[in-house]
Design a protein around this nucleic acid. Structure first.
Lengths: 244, 244
DNA sequence: CGACTCTTTGATCCCGATCAAGTTCAGTGG
DNA sequence: CCACTGAACTTGATCGGGATCAAAGAGTCG
């Protein structure tokens, strides 16, 4: 993945929710970044460390996770290519959580110094960063609210979300997207056991809702899946820039 | 509650995590606000509406909630006096969630226009607003991660959190704080049934961990409670301003 | 006093956890 | 080319925490 393309992808994410002038857009595209690769299951950011750069995902999928004392791992956010998952680390660099590569991942490290400087020189961009963070927080709120749902509904909801986010990021469509995570990783995302994830996926499959093949998920019955998930996409804050 | 005191409380919250110059602090204290009261269980912000002001809690406790199609209500955030729970609404005014008064609540409405204007004139304040939002997001991440925990641990964790937040906001101490919510409301917070909350609280009580009387919670064995909760306060981002 | 809402208790049920193998398949090395 | 390895997926049996249903106290406010 070349750096300009990834930066453009990040810019697209920002401008999908915020209006930015050409000069401001140039500032984003002019960020100096350094690429770095991580192997599957390796920490991109270790828990309780202080970082001096934010991580822009160039390729692969990364996850923010919270580790409990008993070794239980719960994933609290997923980062797709074009996401700068820890953009908020610019203002609070001491992370309470970790970020891990769910597969081979390439990230572009962007120095906090530069992001901070842009935000100070262009308050509008600072607001865009802030707004970007609210979108992540909104997803998180939905995940927290999913505590009450059944396993079936939770998995369906996740698939709806990743489909839409993939489509938004031009990585696939809402009915066919690349999501090559193991069932064990899925379990850490939705807060279930790998065994139960397996059985639940089988049920969804035999109901003709979703299918997967070599890491690509196919949604065969989107309406049905949305119904099971009780899915309402407004929490993703799509097209905020137009909305208001 | 008089307005200046509430604004000062909000300022204290901001400066506990961000360094702000006297001029910037004056800007916050000079915000024009209008007070408004809400009755128990009444919406302060209804789901899916667009708001033009943020809500600073002057008195009482409010909650952000997510309503599923089946009427299930899940609370995703608690706002204590001095919190401006929906500060983020400045940058994304269309809320996907609602905010409800868990008891008689008094809020000060602060126009987005003014907050936006301050953030543009003083980028440092804009950053402080953004940083404030990350603290809320961090709490949310912890709540999301609590999905896996037992009822016992979840309730213990909540009590540890509210105690610390109350102490931080000078509303009480970590071992004696006002938290007059019904068991049904507690159930909506931790994602359990009111019946099970009742039984679990009884267990915590008979283990000598916590007690409550007329809306005030007393923690009799803080260490014990923290152990049950597997509590680590770093996620609350206390004292960020000193930390870095 | 009657109509609330809130707390408490009891009985039963079920979803998802847990424990334990077995199966498939992509690598890897002899 | 085949045996070996290890991760991921699958299946079965059993267990238990919390949900659900139902109803009885206990405050509290007109």
């Amino acid at each position: 993945m070349d750096k300009p393309q990834t930066l453009r992808r990040f810019l697209t994410r920002l401008t999908s929710r915020s209006v930015m002038s050409p000069i401001e857009q140039e500032a984003i595209l002019g960020l100096s970044v350094s690429a770095r690769k991580y192997r599957t299951n390796h920490d991109i950011v270790s828990p309780k460390t202080t970082v001096e750069h934010a991580c822009l995902i160039a390729e692969g999928i990364a996850a923010r996770y919270d580790q409990s004392a008993r070794g239980q791992r719960q994933i609290t956010a997923l980062y797709l290519p074009g996401d700068m998952g820890d953009l908020h680390s610019v203002v609070s660099p001491k992370a309470a959580w970790g970020i891990v590569a769910l597969m081979p991942v390439e990230v572009l490290e962007v120095p906090h110094r530069e992001l901070m400087s842009i935000a100070m020189r262009h308050p509008t961009v600072g607001m865009a960063f802030w707004r970007d963070g609210t979108a992540d927080a909104s997803i998180l709120a939905k995940w927290a609210a999913n505590a009450r749902r059944s396993a079936r509904s939770r998995l369906a909801h996740l698939m709806c979300e990743i489909g839409l986010r993939s489509e938004m990021a031009k990585l696939g469509t809402r009915t066919a997207f690349h999501f090559p995570v193991s069932q064990h990783q899925l379990a850490d995302i939705v807060g279930l056991t790998a065994v139960h994830v397996n059985r639940t996926l089988q049920a969804l499959r035999s109901d003709g809702l979703i299918r997967s093949h070599q890491g690509t998920v196919f949604v065969d019955d989107l309406e049905g899946l949305r119904k099971v998930a009780d899915f309402d996409d407004s929490y993703l804050l799509l097209g905020l820039a137009k909305g208001q």
